[in-house]
Amino acid sequence: ELSPGQLALLKHIVDSYDKHRIPQDMTKRLLQDQYSTEENFLLLTEMATSHVQVLVEFTKNIPGFQALDHEDQIALLKGSAVEAMFLRSAQMFTRKLPHGHPDVLEERIRKSGISEEFITPMFNFYKSIGELQMVQEEHALLTAIAILSPDRPYVKDQEAVEHLQEPVLEILDKFCKLHHPEDPQHFARLLGRLTELRTLNHHHSEMLLSWRVN
């Protein structure tokens, strides 16, 4: 079972994850009208910016984060922003959206000018997240774990970051054992998604470049 301290940390992280989302009026705009490729680009850029702001607010609320070296905080956020964004959008795609909405969203992304070679792995990732049928707690914890990765470039005090990441990993491990007794590999599968995210992150700068060229 989760200890009282672990339960409190879990609740804190999940509450913060729930609280900090992209504003609804922005997500609603995704589903409205037809946009030109240029408008699509601007809207997705605006959403990406909003996502980063939301991510930072979520991260500030992770106990201990703000006590880290300031430049290490920036290195962690820079290293994980893209991964956290893919995780959030995967959640959006796998949630039960009103009829037709996922299609509108998918079409908008496909028409954004991003080349097919990057789109396919992205939707494959969304599918692989969908297969895990993750609950909100798992999304929040996995996001926190991705952010608190000590091996990001330019992190000076890796030990301090490890010290924050380890308790979150332990909670996720226990949470998986409690909620997926039928699948002892569930925790390992979740961590496997972090590896997929690293690959997507790696290709992201290439993707942005091709997007701009298009």
Binding site: L42, T45, T49, V52, V56, E57, H70, L77, K78, A81
Partner: peptide
């Protein structure tokens, strides 16, 4: 506008709380 800022600028501003204002 935020869309003209790089990732690091957005992070720095958000850490300082400037976006909330």
């Amino acid at each position: 506008p935020a869309s003209n800022l790089g990732l690091e600028d957005i992070i720095r501003k958000a850490l300082m709380g400037n976006f909330e204002d």
